[in-house]
Amino acid sequence: MNTFVLKATAPALLLLASLSISATAQTASPNHAGTRVSEQKAQKRADYLEKRIRELHAKLKITDKQSTQWDAYAKTMRDNADSTDQAFRDRGQKLPTLNADEAMKSYADLAQLHADNMKKLAASFHALYGVLSDEQKAIADKLFRHEQEEHHHRRHK
């Protein structure tokens, strides 16, 4: 896979990682207070995603001519976040009753979902990157490289 595409997906990786962590932390609660907290967390994640999409749109200076590819990329980000959130909620509900073998398989399923989502995101980004101007590509290259370096630095502190 193209190195740039991997770098370009760093923001999505960060987003999915943050969604995964927060979704894992929340387990299904039978009471209404727990449900309300889960809904509030889900709304916060959705708000963060929309903010991130708006920021990327502005920083990349997406034009009207690029809106089809941009919209596909943004939709992929939203769809991936939704499927990841749902998968973690489902796992959180089942986890208390899973044996070790089932828990390991469920974790592998989450990892596969993440890989599948990243392939979808990389494909939609590739289409977007193909219609960017040289100036926009330079912005994207710098933006995504910087974010990946920050992510790497945080993980290895």
Rank of each mutant, 00 (worst) to 15 (best):
H152Y: 09
K142V: 11
S124W: 12
D109C: 00
E147L: 09
L132P: 09
K105Y: 04
Q112D: 08
A17K: 04
H126N: 14
A10C: 11
N31G: 13
S29A: 15
K157P: 01
A25I: 13
A33I: 08
I139T: 15
K157I: 02
A28S: 12
Y48L: 13
Q69M: 09
F144L: 08
D85S: 15
K65S: 13
S20Y: 07
A138L: 04
Q86W: 08
A17N: 11
S20I: 03
S29C: 12
L19S: 01
Y48F: 12
L6H: 14
A10E: 13
I53R: 00
L113E: 00
G34Q: 10
E135N: 03
A140P: 03
A8C: 05
L6Y: 14
K94Y: 06
A72S: 15
K105S: 02
E150R: 15
E135T: 04
Y107R: 06
M118N: 06
A10S: 14
S67H: 10
I62D: 01
T9E: 15
Q26S: 11
R54A: 10
L16D: 09
L132F: 04
A127I: 10
V131F: 05
L60C: 03
Q69C: 06
R155P: 00
E102F: 02
L121N: 13
D109S: 05
H153L: 08
M1W: 14
R89C: 02
F125W: 12
D101V: 06
I21A: 12
S106Y: 01
A28E: 12
Q86E: 12
Q93H: 10
H126G: 10
T3W: 09
N2P: 15
R36D: 07
I21E: 10
D71G: 04
T24M: 08
T63D: 08
Y48S: 13
A81M: 09
A33Y: 10
H151T: 01
D85Q: 14
I21N: 06
T68E: 15
I53D: 00
K119W: 04
H151W: 12
Y48G: 09
R89Q: 14
N80C: 12
T97Q: 14
F4S: 08
A115L: 05
H152A: 06
N2G: 08
R91T: 07
A74H: 04
D82I: 05
N80G: 15
